[in-house]
Nucleic acid binder design. Structure first.
Length: 332
DNA sequence: AAGCGCATCAACCGCGGTTTT
DNA sequence: GAAAACCGCGGTTGATGCGCT
């Protein structure tokens, strides 16, 4: 005999998640962390399968998600990584903090594919389309941009280090020299997350194929959003467009951080002096007022079935998670 | 204002590899 | 070792929104 089924699929809810479901899932993960997914629906009081919960969390509710269109640089990264990895969206996503495989996949299919085709580039092979040679004469040599995987891997690629200490408002510097100081873990799928073309080609690509008017740039520094109630925050016009719902709530300053090395999710209070230090540093909560507010937010509208009474102080949880839009809809 | 078509993206489905019994 | 469930991934779908006529 094998295992017992994780859940009885009869009677499970499908389709779009409601704010209430989001809230339940968030509360559960707040209290338990990312737990065995098959147990989550039952324990969280959700009529969903664990798979659906995991998907909802990873693609939508995770607080470290960066919402909004991909920036130019992210698009370039995606294109280059796709040239190296193909449709391995999760691997590509792992090089783009705050982005999910689903998001990248969607963006590829809806935006990048079209742009590449428009440029006369085959989005699958990353080579000029056969019938587009004329069109590509004015374009950068795409075979230079994206060489076949085997060739690329035998070369010392250009390299971009995602160093959190580097001013995030600037795009990562592209080194034209090979480097052995990559900060990323070396693994089987280690890909130097670097566009395989030089800066001139990059500029050509940007100027010829990527209209900056089309893609609002989200700078890396917007991943970690300073949440001081900004007088001119354009994102405050709509909660649904907000990068972080807590901005909308105008709670005390903090920023979401994420230690991508082990996927730990943390909240980093913006008041900390060391906020620019390595993201892997576990931030502590020292704003009792903020904590009490969050406690109140969660407890204020507790589930009537009592499954998710969030009766502990948030300070006891090392991994804090929350969501943007669902908080807006679910808690208010 | 209504109808239509297109674009977007959240969510589902199915598969393959891994883990557990 | 086999069987069955779990998990994660990639492909696809369908609901919704938006722009155009």
């Amino acid at each position: 005999m094998g295992r017992q089924p994780c859940c009885d699929k009869v009677g499970l809810k499908k389709g779009p998640w409601t704010a209430e479901e989001d809230k339940k899932l968030i509360c559960f993960i707040l209290t338990n962390g990312q737990y065995c997914w098959r147990a989550v629906p039952k324990l969280a009081g959700l009529l969903r399968c664990g798979k659906s919960c995991r998907l909802r969390w990873t693609n939508y509710l995770r607080p470290d998600l960066k919402r909004g269109l991909l920036s130019e640089y992210e698009e370039k990264m995606v294109i280059d990584l796709h040239a190296q990895l193909g449709n391995r969206w999760s691997k590509i996503a792992s090089h783009l903090p705050g982005r999910t495989d689903n998001e990248i996949k969607n963006h590829w299919n809806t935006h990048i594919k079209k742009k590449l085709k428009k440029m006369g580039i085959d989005p699958i092979t990353h080579k000029p389309l056969p019938n587009a040679t004329e069109q590509t004469q004015n374009q950068p040599n795409q075979q230079q941009l994206h060489q076949p995987l085997e060739e690329e891997q035998n070369q010392q690629p250009l390299q971009v280090d995602f160093d959190p200490k580097v001013d995030p408002s600037k795009e990562p510097e592209i080194s034209l020299e090979s480097s052995t100081t990559s900060t990323e873990a070396r693994g089987e799928d280690q890909i130097i997350a670097t566009p395989q073309f030089d800066t001139m080609e990059l500029n050509q690509l940007v100027n010829n194929g990527f209209c900056t008017d089309e893609v609002p740039i989200i700078e890396p520094n917007e991943i970690l959003m300073p949440c001081a109630p900004s007088s001119s925050s354009t994102s405050s016009s709509s909660s649904s467009n907000s990068t972080n719902i807590l901005q909308d709530l105008q709670l005390p300053d903090f920023e979401w951080c994420c230690d991508y090395s082990d996927s730990s999710l943390i909240i980093n209070n913006n008041n900390h002096e060391d906020k620019n230090s390595n993201n892997s540093a576990m931030a502590l909560w020292d704003d009792d007022d903020f904590i009490s507010k969050l406690n109140w937010l969660i407890n204020e509208d507790d589930d009537s079935d009592g499954n998710q009474v969030f009766d502990g102080s948030l300070t006891q949880f090392s991994r804090m998670v929350t969501d943007s839009e669902s908080w807006a809809f679910g808690l208010f």
